[in-house]
Protein backbone atom coordinates (compact mmCIF):
# COMPACT_ATOMS: atom_id res chain seq x y z
CA UNK A 1 0.00 0.00 0.00
CA UNK A 2 1.39 3.43 -0.83
CA UNK A 3 0.40 7.00 -0.17
CA UNK A 4 -1.34 8.49 2.82
CA UNK A 5 -4.46 6.87 4.13
CA UNK A 6 -7.44 9.05 3.41
CA UNK A 7 -9.95 9.77 6.15
CA UNK A 8 -13.25 8.04 5.53
CA UNK A 9 -16.46 9.77 6.50
CA UNK A 10 -18.38 7.60 8.91
CA UNK A 11 -21.75 8.91 7.86
CA UNK A 12 -23.30 10.75 4.98
CA UNK A 13 -26.31 12.43 6.48
CA UNK A 14 -29.52 12.79 4.55
CA UNK A 15 -31.23 16.12 4.78
CA UNK A 16 -33.19 16.26 1.57
CA UNK A 17 -36.57 16.65 3.24
CA UNK A 18 -35.52 19.67 5.22
CA UNK A 19 -35.28 23.24 3.99
CA UNK A 20 -31.88 24.46 2.83
CA UNK A 21 -31.23 26.68 5.88
CA UNK A 22 -32.01 23.76 8.22
CA UNK A 23 -29.62 21.53 6.31
CA UNK A 24 -26.85 24.02 6.99
CA UNK A 25 -27.58 23.84 10.70
CA UNK A 26 -27.85 20.07 10.74
CA UNK A 27 -24.83 19.08 8.69
CA UNK A 28 -22.17 20.28 11.13
CA UNK A 29 -24.12 18.70 14.00
CA UNK A 30 -24.03 15.24 12.47
CA UNK A 31 -20.59 15.65 10.93
CA UNK A 32 -19.24 16.64 14.34
CA UNK A 33 -20.52 13.43 15.88
CA UNK A 34 -19.77 11.40 12.80
CA UNK A 35 -16.11 12.19 12.55
CA UNK A 36 -14.95 10.91 15.90
CA UNK A 37 -12.61 8.56 14.11
CA UNK A 38 -10.69 10.46 11.46
CA UNK A 39 -7.75 8.11 10.95
CA UNK A 40 -9.16 5.62 8.48
CA UNK A 41 -12.78 5.12 9.34
CA UNK A 42 -12.28 2.07 11.52
CA UNK A 43 -15.38 1.32 13.45
CA UNK A 44 -15.64 1.49 17.21
CA UNK A 45 -19.13 0.04 17.17
CA UNK A 46 -19.77 -2.87 19.51
CA UNK A 47 -22.27 -5.65 18.98
CA UNK A 48 -24.52 -3.76 21.42
CA UNK A 49 -24.69 -0.85 18.97
CA UNK A 50 -26.06 -3.18 16.30
CA UNK A 51 -28.56 -4.55 18.82
CA UNK A 52 -29.61 -0.96 19.60
CA UNK A 53 -30.40 -0.52 15.88
CA UNK A 54 -33.05 -3.21 16.26
CA UNK A 55 -34.99 -1.11 18.83
CA UNK A 56 -35.08 -3.93 21.40
CA UNK A 57 -37.87 -2.39 23.52
CA UNK A 58 -40.19 -2.08 20.53
CA UNK A 59 -39.10 -5.54 19.45
CA UNK A 60 -40.07 -7.05 22.81
CA UNK A 61 -43.66 -5.80 22.46
CA UNK A 62 -43.75 -7.04 18.85
CA UNK A 63 -42.49 -10.48 19.91
CA UNK A 64 -45.01 -10.62 22.73
CA UNK A 65 -48.04 -9.65 20.63
CA UNK A 66 -46.88 -11.91 17.79
CA UNK A 67 -46.61 -14.79 20.24
CA UNK A 68 -50.13 -14.12 21.58
CA UNK A 69 -51.48 -14.12 17.99
CA UNK A 70 -49.73 -17.42 17.36
CA UNK A 71 -51.08 -18.99 20.56
CA UNK A 72 -54.61 -17.63 20.05
CA UNK A 73 -54.92 -19.11 16.56
CA UNK A 74 -56.89 -22.32 16.22
CA UNK A 75 -54.94 -25.33 14.98
CA UNK A 76 -51.54 -26.82 15.53
CA UNK A 77 -48.04 -25.72 14.66
CA UNK A 78 -44.80 -27.57 15.31
CA UNK A 79 -43.15 -25.85 18.33
CA UNK A 80 -39.85 -25.53 16.45
CA UNK A 81 -41.60 -23.83 13.53
CA UNK A 82 -43.51 -21.63 16.00
CA UNK A 83 -40.20 -20.55 17.53
CA UNK A 84 -38.79 -19.84 14.06
CA UNK A 85 -41.91 -17.79 13.23
CA UNK A 86 -41.50 -15.67 16.36
CA UNK A 87 -37.77 -15.23 15.70
CA UNK A 88 -38.49 -14.11 12.13
CA UNK A 89 -41.13 -11.63 13.34
CA UNK A 90 -38.60 -10.29 15.89
CA UNK A 91 -35.78 -9.97 13.34
CA UNK A 92 -38.15 -8.43 10.77
CA UNK A 93 -39.30 -5.87 13.35
CA UNK A 94 -35.67 -5.16 14.22
CA UNK A 95 -34.79 -4.75 10.55
CA UNK A 96 -37.53 -2.17 10.06
CA UNK A 97 -36.24 -0.36 13.16
CA UNK A 98 -32.75 -0.27 11.64
CA UNK A 99 -34.11 1.03 8.31
CA UNK A 100 -36.00 3.69 10.26
CA UNK A 101 -32.78 4.78 11.98
CA UNK A 102 -30.96 4.80 8.65
CA UNK A 103 -33.48 7.17 7.08
CA UNK A 104 -34.15 9.32 10.14
CA UNK A 105 -30.51 9.89 11.19
CA UNK A 106 -30.82 13.62 10.52
CA UNK A 107 -33.84 14.19 12.76
CA UNK A 108 -32.60 11.67 15.35
CA UNK A 109 -29.56 13.92 15.81
CA UNK A 110 -31.84 16.81 16.77
CA UNK A 111 -34.19 15.11 19.19
CA UNK A 112 -33.05 14.52 22.79
CA UNK A 113 -34.79 11.13 22.93
CA UNK A 114 -32.90 9.80 19.88
CA UNK A 115 -29.63 11.76 19.78
CA UNK A 116 -27.65 8.91 21.36
CA UNK A 117 -28.66 6.34 18.75
CA UNK A 118 -25.69 4.71 16.96
CA UNK A 119 -25.80 6.85 13.77
CA UNK A 120 -26.20 10.34 15.27
CA UNK A 121 -23.65 9.37 17.96
CA UNK A 122 -21.20 8.57 15.13
CA UNK A 123 -20.60 4.93 16.04
CA UNK A 124 -22.04 3.35 12.88
CA UNK A 125 -22.31 4.79 9.38
CA UNK A 126 -25.63 5.15 7.60
CA UNK A 127 -24.47 2.83 4.80
CA UNK A 128 -23.70 0.07 7.26
CA UNK A 129 -27.11 0.45 8.87
CA UNK A 130 -28.87 0.35 5.50
CA UNK A 131 -27.04 -2.87 4.59
CA UNK A 132 -27.74 -4.34 8.02
CA UNK A 133 -31.46 -3.51 7.80
CA UNK A 134 -31.89 -4.82 4.26
CA UNK A 135 -29.97 -8.02 5.02
CA UNK A 136 -32.04 -8.79 8.10
CA UNK A 137 -35.26 -7.99 6.20
CA UNK A 138 -34.43 -10.45 3.45
CA UNK A 139 -33.28 -13.17 5.85
CA UNK A 140 -36.33 -12.88 8.11
CA UNK A 141 -38.86 -12.89 5.26
CA UNK A 142 -37.20 -15.72 3.30
CA UNK A 143 -36.78 -17.87 6.42
CA UNK A 144 -40.42 -17.34 7.42
CA UNK A 145 -41.57 -18.19 3.89
CA UNK A 146 -39.44 -21.34 3.65
CA UNK A 147 -40.21 -22.76 7.09
CA UNK A 148 -43.69 -21.49 7.97
CA UNK A 149 -45.87 -20.28 5.10
CA UNK A 150 -45.85 -17.77 2.26
CA UNK A 151 -48.78 -15.68 3.52
CA UNK A 152 -47.07 -14.91 6.85
CA UNK A 153 -43.84 -14.12 4.96
CA UNK A 154 -45.74 -11.76 2.67
CA UNK A 155 -47.33 -10.04 5.69
CA UNK A 156 -43.92 -9.66 7.35
CA UNK A 157 -42.44 -8.18 4.15
CA UNK A 158 -45.41 -5.83 3.89
CA UNK A 159 -44.98 -4.79 7.54
CA UNK A 160 -41.30 -3.94 7.00
CA UNK A 161 -42.17 -2.05 3.81
CA UNK A 162 -45.01 -0.22 5.52
CA UNK A 163 -42.86 0.88 8.47
CA UNK A 164 -39.71 1.74 6.53
CA UNK A 165 -41.20 3.26 3.39
CA UNK A 166 -44.83 4.29 3.97
CA UNK A 167 -44.38 5.52 7.56
CA UNK A 168 -40.72 6.55 7.84
CA UNK A 169 -40.05 7.91 4.36
CA UNK A 170 -43.46 9.30 3.53
CA UNK A 171 -45.97 9.88 6.32
CA UNK A 172 -43.74 10.81 9.26
CA UNK A 173 -42.53 14.10 7.80
CA UNK A 174 -45.59 15.00 5.77
CA UNK A 175 -48.79 14.65 7.81
CA UNK A 176 -49.99 14.81 11.42
CA UNK A 177 -51.86 11.59 10.66
CA UNK A 178 -48.43 9.87 10.43
CA UNK A 179 -48.82 7.60 13.42
CA UNK A 180 -52.52 6.91 12.76
CA UNK A 181 -51.78 5.27 9.40
CA UNK A 182 -48.24 4.22 10.29
CA UNK A 183 -49.58 2.48 13.38
CA UNK A 184 -50.62 -0.37 11.11
CA UNK A 185 -46.99 -1.53 10.99
CA UNK A 186 -46.97 -2.14 14.74
CA UNK A 187 -50.37 -3.83 14.59
CA UNK A 188 -49.44 -6.57 12.12
CA UNK A 189 -47.34 -8.89 14.39
CA UNK A 190 -50.28 -10.67 16.11
CA UNK A 191 -51.86 -11.15 12.70
CA UNK A 192 -48.59 -12.63 11.37
CA UNK A 193 -48.49 -14.97 14.38
CA UNK A 194 -52.07 -16.02 13.69
CA UNK A 195 -51.41 -16.55 9.97
CA UNK A 196 -48.29 -18.60 10.80
CA UNK A 197 -50.63 -21.20 12.30
CA UNK A 198 -53.75 -20.96 10.11
CA UNK A 199 -52.31 -19.75 6.78
CA UNK A 200 -55.33 -17.45 6.47
CA UNK A 201 -56.52 -14.03 7.64
CA UNK A 202 -59.68 -14.29 9.73
CA UNK A 203 -61.87 -11.80 11.60
CA UNK A 204 -60.20 -12.74 14.88
CA UNK A 205 -56.77 -11.79 13.55
CA UNK A 206 -58.21 -8.52 12.23
CA UNK A 207 -59.56 -7.74 15.73
CA UNK A 208 -56.10 -8.39 17.24
CA UNK A 209 -54.73 -6.02 14.59
CA UNK A 210 -57.38 -3.36 15.28
CA UNK A 211 -56.69 -3.29 19.04
CA UNK A 212 -53.09 -2.19 18.44
CA UNK A 213 -53.98 -0.03 15.44
CA UNK A 214 -56.52 2.03 17.44
CA UNK A 215 -54.32 2.06 20.56
CA UNK A 216 -51.37 3.66 18.71
CA UNK A 217 -52.77 7.23 18.26
CA UNK A 218 -53.64 7.86 21.94
CA UNK A 219 -50.35 6.24 22.99
CA UNK A 220 -48.15 8.33 20.68
CA UNK A 221 -50.11 11.55 20.97
CA UNK A 222 -49.85 11.37 24.77
CA UNK A 223 -46.06 11.12 24.28
CA UNK A 224 -45.99 13.89 21.70
CA UNK A 225 -47.89 16.21 24.04
CA UNK A 226 -45.03 16.32 26.51
CA UNK A 227 -42.30 15.92 23.86
CA UNK A 228 -43.74 18.48 21.44
CA UNK A 229 -40.69 20.76 21.73
CA UNK A 230 -38.48 17.95 20.46
CA UNK A 231 -40.79 17.21 17.54
CA UNK A 232 -41.05 20.94 16.80
CA UNK A 233 -37.24 21.24 16.67
CA UNK A 234 -37.02 18.30 14.28
CA UNK A 235 -39.91 19.71 12.22
CA UNK A 236 -41.94 16.52 12.48
CA UNK A 237 -45.62 17.39 12.00
CA UNK A 238 -46.99 15.65 15.09
CA UNK A 239 -50.59 16.39 16.01
CA UNK A 240 -49.89 18.86 18.88
CA UNK A 241 -47.51 20.91 16.70
CA UNK A 242 -49.93 21.09 13.77
CA UNK A 243 -53.46 21.02 15.20
CA UNK A 244 -52.66 22.31 18.67
CA UNK A 245 -52.83 20.85 22.14
CA UNK A 246 -56.61 21.10 22.63
CA UNK A 247 -57.42 19.30 19.38
CA UNK A 248 -54.86 16.56 20.15
CA UNK A 249 -56.33 15.97 23.59
CA UNK A 250 -59.81 15.68 22.12
CA UNK A 251 -58.62 13.21 19.47
CA UNK A 252 -56.83 11.17 22.14
CA UNK A 253 -60.17 10.84 23.89
CA UNK A 254 -61.96 9.90 20.64
CA UNK A 255 -59.47 7.14 19.77
CA UNK A 256 -59.60 5.82 23.34
CA UNK A 257 -63.37 5.74 22.96
CA UNK A 258 -62.84 3.51 19.89
CA UNK A 259 -60.15 1.20 21.25
CA UNK A 260 -61.91 0.44 24.56
CA UNK A 261 -64.91 -1.40 23.00
CA UNK A 262 -62.80 -2.98 20.23
CA UNK A 263 -60.55 -4.49 22.92
CA UNK A 264 -63.60 -6.31 24.33
CA UNK A 265 -64.36 -7.97 20.96
CA UNK A 266 -62.14 -11.05 21.51
CA UNK A 267 -64.51 -12.00 24.35
CA UNK A 268 -67.65 -11.05 22.39
CA UNK A 269 -66.46 -13.11 19.41
CA UNK A 270 -65.69 -16.08 21.63
CA UNK A 271 -61.95 -16.50 21.17
CA UNK A 272 -61.26 -15.06 24.63
CA UNK A 273 -62.97 -16.10 27.86
CA UNK A 274 -64.88 -14.23 30.58
CA UNK A 275 -61.75 -13.30 32.54
CA UNK A 276 -60.45 -11.41 29.52
CA UNK A 277 -63.94 -9.96 28.98
CA UNK A 278 -64.20 -8.48 32.47
CA UNK A 279 -60.56 -7.38 32.47
CA UNK A 280 -60.79 -5.64 29.08
CA UNK A 281 -63.94 -3.76 30.17
CA UNK A 282 -62.27 -2.60 33.39
CA UNK A 283 -59.04 -1.62 31.64
CA UNK A 284 -60.99 0.15 28.89
CA UNK A 285 -62.85 2.18 31.53
CA UNK A 286 -59.55 3.08 33.22
CA UNK A 287 -57.98 4.03 29.87
CA UNK A 288 -60.98 6.24 29.14
CA UNK A 289 -60.57 7.82 32.59
CA UNK A 290 -56.97 8.74 31.78
CA UNK A 291 -58.01 10.06 28.35
CA UNK A 292 -60.74 12.13 29.99
CA UNK A 293 -58.29 13.71 32.43
CA UNK A 294 -55.93 14.52 29.54
CA UNK A 295 -58.79 16.08 27.57
CA UNK A 296 -60.00 18.15 30.55
CA UNK A 297 -56.52 19.24 31.65
CA UNK A 298 -55.75 22.93 31.09
CA UNK A 299 -54.13 23.83 27.77
CA UNK A 300 -50.57 25.13 28.07
CA UNK A 301 -49.80 23.42 31.37
CA UNK A 302 -46.05 22.84 31.46
CA UNK A 303 -45.85 19.63 33.51
CA UNK A 304 -48.30 17.64 31.36
CA UNK A 305 -48.83 15.18 34.21
CA UNK A 306 -52.10 13.70 32.82
CA UNK A 307 -50.42 13.05 29.44
CA UNK A 308 -47.40 11.43 31.11
CA UNK A 309 -49.67 9.25 33.24
CA UNK A 310 -51.72 8.28 30.21
CA UNK A 311 -48.62 7.41 28.20
CA UNK A 312 -47.35 5.11 30.98
CA UNK A 313 -50.78 3.54 31.42
CA UNK A 314 -51.20 2.98 27.67
CA UNK A 315 -48.17 0.66 27.64
CA UNK A 316 -49.52 -1.25 30.62
CA UNK A 317 -52.99 -1.34 29.01
CA UNK A 318 -51.86 -3.04 25.80
CA UNK A 319 -49.38 -5.35 27.51
CA UNK A 320 -51.85 -6.48 30.18
CA UNK A 321 -54.69 -7.08 27.69
CA UNK A 322 -52.51 -9.37 25.61
CA UNK A 323 -51.05 -10.98 28.76
CA UNK A 324 -54.50 -11.85 30.12
CA UNK A 325 -55.53 -13.16 26.69
CA UNK A 326 -52.39 -15.31 26.62
CA UNK A 327 -52.93 -16.50 30.20
CA UNK A 328 -56.47 -17.63 29.38
CA UNK A 329 -55.33 -19.43 26.25
CA UNK A 330 -52.57 -21.24 28.13
CA UNK A 331 -54.97 -22.31 30.90
CA UNK A 332 -57.46 -23.54 28.29
CA UNK A 333 -54.75 -25.52 26.48
CA UNK A 334 -53.47 -26.96 29.77
CA UNK A 335 -56.99 -28.05 30.74
CA UNK A 336 -57.42 -29.69 27.33
CA UNK A 337 -54.18 -31.61 27.78
CA UNK A 338 -55.15 -32.60 31.35
CA UNK A 339 -58.58 -33.75 30.19
CA UNK A 340 -57.22 -35.73 27.26
Amino acid sequence: MSGPLEPVARTSPKTKLLPENDKNELMPLIEKNASLDTSIGLSEANASDYIALLKPRVMSLVVFTGFVGLMAAPGQINPVLAAIAILCIAVGAGASGALNMWYDADIDAIMKRTAKRPIPAGRISREEVLTFGLLLSVFSVVTLGLFVNLLSAFLLAFTIFFYAVVYTMWLKRSTPQNIVIGGAAGAFPPMIGWVAVTNSISMESIVLFMIIFLWTPPHFWALSLFMSDDYEKAKIPMMPNVMGEASTKFQIFLYTLLVAPVAVLPWVMGFAGPVYGVFSIAMGAAFLGYAWSVWRSPVGEAMMRPAKKMFAFSIFYLFSLYAVLLGEILVRKALLVAGA
Binding site: M1, L5, S43, A47, Y50
Partner: peptide, 23 residues
Protein backbone atom coordinates in the same frame (compact mmCIF):
# COMPACT_ATOMS: atom_id res chain seq x y z
CA UNK B 1 6.01 -0.39 -1.29
CA UNK B 2 5.80 1.64 1.87
CA UNK B 3 5.16 0.23 5.32
CA UNK B 4 1.86 1.99 5.97
CA UNK B 5 -0.01 -0.25 8.35
CA UNK B 6 -3.18 0.18 10.24
CA UNK B 7 -2.74 -0.08 13.97
CA UNK B 8 -5.95 -0.57 15.86
CA UNK B 9 -6.48 1.27 19.09
CA UNK B 10 -7.55 -0.77 22.11
CA UNK B 11 -11.10 0.46 21.74
CA UNK B 12 -11.19 -0.48 18.06
CA UNK B 13 -9.72 -3.90 18.81
CA UNK B 14 -12.31 -4.59 21.51
CA UNK B 15 -15.11 -3.39 19.23
CA UNK B 16 -13.87 -5.56 16.38
CA UNK B 17 -13.70 -8.60 18.66
CA UNK B 18 -17.21 -7.92 19.96
CA UNK B 19 -18.56 -7.67 16.38
CA UNK B 20 -16.72 -10.81 15.29
CA UNK B 21 -18.15 -12.85 18.17
CA UNK B 22 -21.66 -11.54 17.52
CA UNK B 23 -21.38 -12.38 13.82
Amino acid sequence: MSNDRVTLTDKQRRAQRSRSIAL
